[in-house]
């Protein structure tokens, strides 16, 4: 409802860029309708294929640039999983690599002007966070059975405090997917919305240079955020996985 200042000429539509539209025609959006989100997810798949499959097809001992990037991403996530989740966590490495590659590519693709950032939608991030949450909880119960509940029973605390801490731990456990998803979507959305607001100020000639500087600065910030949020999402997944594999405090 920011479209009220129509008489003043300055119209803020910072959220308009996140609107889903059908790619073909102008009908309603059914669950199967190809939309701009579908398009940019497809482009993300394409980029990942280019980077990790086409880029490494020569299997060079001395890698070229593309293969280097692919190997760098592989090593980055592999060491992260190994360091944080431990040796047993390596089994789930492809799963975590999938999440990381999708988020980081989608974030960077979203920074292209006029593109659509799929990771700014809570629907997308909530699904990913819930996938992680459900998987990790199932892994915990399959590995340790009822012993997984030791995660909530802080054995290092005084006995009287333990029930209180258990309640707090339980709540924080169930808040995990919420913060996990909203952090990613919120960061991406905030960056894009702020850029949009700065861009709207560019309509006023007097402060247009200032708004341009603001856009450039925010864009630089967003490039950083795009990577850091993907990193954070992935490393939190690893941390949750570690909790499931070694629940005892």
């Amino acid at each position: 409802m920011a479209a009220e200042e129509q008489s003043e000429g300055l119209q803020f539509h910072p959220m308009e860029q996140f609107t889903l539209e059908p790619l073909f025609g102008d009908g309603p959006i059914h669950w199967y309708t190809p939309t701009n989100a579908t398009l940019w997810m497809g482009i993300a798949i394409l980029v990942i294929v280019l980077l990790l499959v086409i880029g490494t097809r020569r299997r060079a001992i001395v890698p070229n640039r593309t293969q280097s990037i692919g190997e760098l991403a592989y090593g980055f996530i592999y060491t992260m999983v190994e360091d944080v989740a431990g040796k047993e966590g390596v089994k789930y490495f492809p799963y975590i690599m999938t999440l990381f590659m999708f988020i980081v590519t989608a974030n960077f693709l979203g920074l292209i002007p006029l593109s659509f950032s799929t990771t700014s939608h809570i629907a997308v991030t909530v699904v990913m966070a819930l996938l992680v949450f459900v998987t990790v909880t199932l892994i915990g119960f399959f590995k340790h059975g009822i012993g997984f509940l030791k995660l909530f029973w802080v054995s290092s605390a005084p006995l009287a405090l333990r029930p209180v801490l258990a309640v707090i731990e339980l709540i924080s456990y169930f808040v995990r997917p919420v913060s996990h998803s909203i952090r990613l979507a919120g960061n991406v959305m905030a960056g894009h919305a702020v850029i949009e607001v700065f861009a709207t100020f560019g309509a006023i000639l007097a402060i247009a240079p200032l708004s341009l500087i603001g856009i450039v600065a925010m864009f630089g910030m967003d490039v950083l955020v795009a990577f850091v949020q993907a990193y954070v999402f992935t490393i939190l997944t690893c941390v949750y996985l570690k909790d499931a594999l070694h629940p005892a405090h």
Partner: peptide, 10 residues
């Protein structure tokens, strides 16, 4: 729609 296409993508 988004959830469907996200799952397909993943």
């Amino acid at each position: 729609n988004q959830i469907f296409w996200l799952l397909v993508t993943l």
